Computed example of a mutant assay.
Amino acid sequence: MTNSYSSALDAEQVHVSFGRIEWALQALIVLSLAAFALETLPDLSPVQLLALQGFEVFATVVFTVEYVARVWLTRPWRRYVFSFYGLIDILAIVPFYLSLGVGSESLRSLRLLRLFRIFKLARYNVAMLRFYRALVIAREELVLFGVMALILLYLAGVGVYQFEHVAQPEAFRSVFDGLWWALCTLTTVGYGDVYPVTAGGKLFTFAILVVGLGVIAVPVGLVASALTLAREEIERGAHGAGSNVPTACGIKESR
């Protein structure tokens, strides 16, 4: 009885410790993203720049230790290294080490890769985890929809080119100009830099606008349905043995 109580107490202490590490890592991720934004301020003093650089070194060291620990504890290690979270974790630290041996111009592009750290929050947030699982569930439907959207985009670009090329040879010089118009129209952005002036082109635009509304609605419906399935899956996994749902600081990675 005493041993059972002691084991339960130890498990609870481990859970509390993992929870604290989880919150600390989340805070460090947010602070590192804030530091990235602060580095772009034009009037920073040398002391402020040095402080931001020092914090970047500290954050990178912590993320490196986290990555090495996960590789060391995961069996087999390839399961983590080549998983979604494993790739995000390595992309979050590699830019720092690569920047040590490159020039200032290349350093700017490498610093931009630090934005991958924002995806690390998905591991520690239940809502983001659910969204990730929804994308996995609906991946085939989303890929199919993406292919159909590209086909529709191409047909719309060719169509408006045929209608408007003669009337507006400068605005619609080629199908590629038509593709730009189609992209703005299908996404309902409508920048207004190119637009049809012929009757046929205007009628064609109306049809494309109607289709564009459906283009936005379809993936929203797919993801919404998948989110419901993901919630049920995560809740079943949380109450079942051998769950694939990863804990905040656990090594299990969801597939």
Rank of each mutant, 00 (worst) to 15 (best):
G54H: 05
E66N: 03
S243N: 13
T228W: 09
L209W: 05
L91R: 05
L87P: 02
Y97L: 03
R139A: 07
T60A: 10
P169S: 08
A149M: 10
A69C: 06
E235K: 06
Q48G: 07
Y154Q: 11
R117Q: 14
D43Y: 09
I137L: 13
E164I: 10
G250K: 04
T2R: 11
N244L: 07
L98D: 02
F206E: 08
H165C: 04
E39V: 08
V62W: 00
L209A: 10
V65T: 09
R70K: 12
L229Q: 15
W77P: 13
R130L: 08
A217P: 02
T185G: 08
L155M: 15
M148E: 11
G103Q: 09
W72N: 09
L91I: 09
L209M: 13
A69D: 10
F172K: 05
V81C: 04
G221K: 12
S6C: 00
A127M: 04
L155V: 11
F206R: 07
L203A: 14
Q48I: 09
I208T: 15
A35T: 13
P46D: 13
G159V: 04
G101T: 12
E232G: 10
I216Q: 09
L203D: 12
S104T: 15
A199R: 14
A35K: 04
S99A: 15
H165G: 02
R70E: 03
L28A: 07
A217R: 11
F82P: 04
Y191H: 12
G201D: 01
M128W: 14
L115P: 03
I251P: 00
A167L: 04
E56W: 01
Y124A: 06
L227Q: 08
I29C: 10
T247P: 00
